[in-house]
Design a protein around this nucleic acid. Structure first.
Lengths: 173, 173
DNA sequence: CCAGTCTTTCAGAATTTCCTGAAAGATCGG
DNA sequence: CCGATCTTTCAGGAAATTCTGAAAGACTGG
């Protein structure tokens, strides 16, 4: 292997390792983040066995996380003609990646919060004591805000990239 | 205790329990989220012992998470005159809470990602092979996007609430 | 069908994260 | 200073999460 290929391999390994470590901060497990990093920077789709080999992980682990990434929409399973096994390739478009992650986070973080807040606001709506009113008011304020954030998230996620950038640029200007 | 007080206690306990469970999804530990919920809905500042009692947790746990919340800026330690022990009160303004959480998440999630991407883009900038170029390009695209997101986050976090709502409303309209 | 290949599942092991309880440290009034 | 009260730290235990490896299941070409 020549020097350039070695440098590339080193840079890519670094990326995979660091991205994996970062995954933890994002509430994503290390392996899932590593596989995502690996495939985002793979010139060709890869098989389960190649992923196992590259990351030195078990078949079960590789399988579970590959499927999870497919469920998110960050990977696609592809079939090559004449091949029985599945290959996986990553979505590489940054705006696509962003919208997928945003939607998933909304589903896992915002929506459950909204459900709790709505229920608590509802449950406390009839209480007449000053403390009850304060509690209700706090729940309502949070509910409003989180509901608002939820709508914003939808709106932005469904924009075309160009439009979002244009809008954001105006904001940053 | 009368019916209304009971209902309030029940609603509040529900909120604390659910918010705590949700904390896990947010990458925050359960106790920290519970304490935050408890204090956000407390009519008066509370002491460590009251928090321990209410949530049935150990002193160490209560102490550590109270301090962590203070470090985030979600709680303030207050002193009552004639009292030696510390009381804690929560920031209750939703926009404040949002900006604090946004800043913290940026620090823990976005900035490390940006550092990795910059380094990997830099390390691969000189590689001349097609695969090296593709890798470099992918790193650069991610770096650009994450850098952009970082700026956006700053910009929004430093807005006045009214302005942010106005802007967002235009977007939602 | 059968043999070979690939995929899926899952019980238990390994690892990571979180919590407890107790002891040590700080602060204060007298 | 001293005793009382409150705060901080941290070693070890508990709980939650993640990973392994092996076995069972599914598919395919012959």
């Amino acid at each position: 292997m020549n020097t350039e290929d070695k440098n590339l391999k080193q840079a890519r390994d670094e990326f995979v390792a660091q991205w994996g470590a970062l995954g933890t901060q994002w509430g994503i497990n290390r392996t899932m983040a590593q596989i995502h990093a690996l495939l985002m920077t793979a010139p060709e789709p890869m098989t389960t066995d190649e992923v196992m080999e590259e990351l030195q992980i078990s078949r079960g682990n590789a399988h579970t996380n590959l499927k999870e990434l497919v469920a998110w929409g960050l990977l696609r399973a592809v079939v090559k003609k004449g091949e029985r096994r599945e290959f996986f390739e990553a979505e590489k478009d940054v705006w696509q990646i962003f919208t997928i992650v945003a939607r998933e986070r909304k589903r896992r973080e915002i929506e459950p919060a909204l459900a709790i807040l709505s229920k608590c606001a509802e449950d406390s709506s009839g209480i007449k004591t000053p403390e009850g009113k304060a509690f209700h008011e706090q729940m309502r304020a949070l509910e409003d805000f989180v509901g608002f954030a939820s709508k914003m998230s939808d709106r932005i996620s469904s924009m075309k990239y160009g439009f979002a950038v244009q809008m954001a640029t105006k904001l940053l200007g």
